[in-house]
Design a protein around this nucleic acid. Sequence first.
DNA 1: TAGATTGTTAATCGATTAACAATC
DNA 2: TAGATTGTTAATCGATTAACAATC
Lengths: 246, 246
Amino acid sequence: MTLKFQWLFLGSEQAVILITQPTQNGAMMVLISNNLINPRTVGRLSIYRRVLIQLANEGIMRVFSRDLAKMAGVSPSQVRQDLMKVSTNGTPQNGYSVAELTQAVITCLGTTKITPVVLLGAGPLGQAILDCFKATQPNLVMSAVFEVNPNMVGKHLYDIPVLDFSMLANHVQAGRIQTAILALPAEEAQQAVDILIASGVSSILNFTTARLQVPSRVFVENNDILLSLERVAFYATDTAEEKVRA
Amino acid sequence: MTLKFQWLFLGSEQAVILITQPTQNGAMMVLISNNLINPRTVGRLSIYRRVLIQLANEGIMRVFSRDLAKMAGVSPSQVRQDLMKVSTNGTPQNGYSVAELTQAVITCLGTTKITPVVLLGAGPLGQAILDCFKATQPNLVMSAVFEVNPNMVGKHLYDIPVLDFSMLANHVQAGRIQTAILALPAEEAQQAVDILIASGVSSILNFTTARLQVPSRVFVENNDILLSLERVAFYATDTAEEKVRA
DNA sequence: TAGATTGTTAATCGATTAACAATC
DNA sequence: TAGATTGTTAATCGATTAACAATC
């Protein structure tokens, strides 16, 4: 009997895993449908991991939810609620073992598995992303950069080869690459996404302003830098002009 | 009588404006406390603006909430709910005038006022942000880039002068600059933020992994690229390994 | 008019916070 | 033991969605 499992993303904040099996007439039957960790929680767990690693570097052995909360910028309740998603081992009076909790969070986030990534676009943003990769955990490995600009193709950026865009589908399929980063012009985004998904990609980090059309099994994280800029501009207030005469 | 008004940010998703006046003993008395547009709504309004401008370019004169919703990737209810925040002018049967709605959204977002910005950090990420500025509305104007690296100071990047970090406070004060972008090492972030806030900055776009400590009147938008990467890696699933034998 | 859409209020949904028994 | 913290359930809060009267 062949079982199949896949993520399903509901909106942008909720994820579900489906385990299905084929019925006699060929249709799929849902066996298990588990609510799993949603993107917000994953984000906070990543932050806890950073904080925990820093604590370990400082030689601190144990930590309370209150302290972890303060350092991560969230509430103590939130920390304990989130830690319910990982196999916790805290004790009253003693809090959590930094070493054990770090391990539990890392296991939960699956940061132990090597995840190959492709980057689309070798412009300034693409290069900045490559630069960021120096700081990531070693489980994320950049496989190649794809560009249409013939002046860049064949070179290396941060030791990563820049390949022609036409090689994208083959490369992704051959390397069974599941993760892609979009740092190309918004007009080219959807077309590239169609190729990526057809080649097996299931998780996309989208730095373009385009709204991507993808099947529900594919995860999309939008990081719209222009939107961030516009929002920050909106909330800027000139304190020097804040006083008005009535 | 001197009135004073200021934003107040509650958590990361809610903003309030306070209008206060001094009492006889010098304390401030709250006159009006208005719930105003929260960051999520501001983000969606920015997206609507983009969509509307594109529609105008295509020569389309009128639009229904249903169509706007589809193009922005949200629900029709959400569109109408958001448009309640701007002075709307839609009519049943005819929907919204693209030109009028664009104008109303732009007015609401305050995109008419020139907003000067400083950028901290001239590394690869800083340069990518400068590159993004080409695409922004002309109301956002980059004033200067600040760096500690003496090899960069004195040069120009994208026609913007790179100044020494020691000139930051004076420059921000002299130019009454309210908005700053952080693209420097996380270890230097808080120290820089303290200088910025003391110099009058009220709105910060933080690209570092640091959690910033700021007074509640200051808006902080965190854009943690490493977190985005980690989240995307988490949801990647290898479809080729999705089939398991039971 | 009939039908469809707006503007707005009510209902739902989900995420965060509070509370508290169990425990060290 | 007394006091404080965990793990978890219940309550709250806020955001999104649905519903619907008013309207063109």
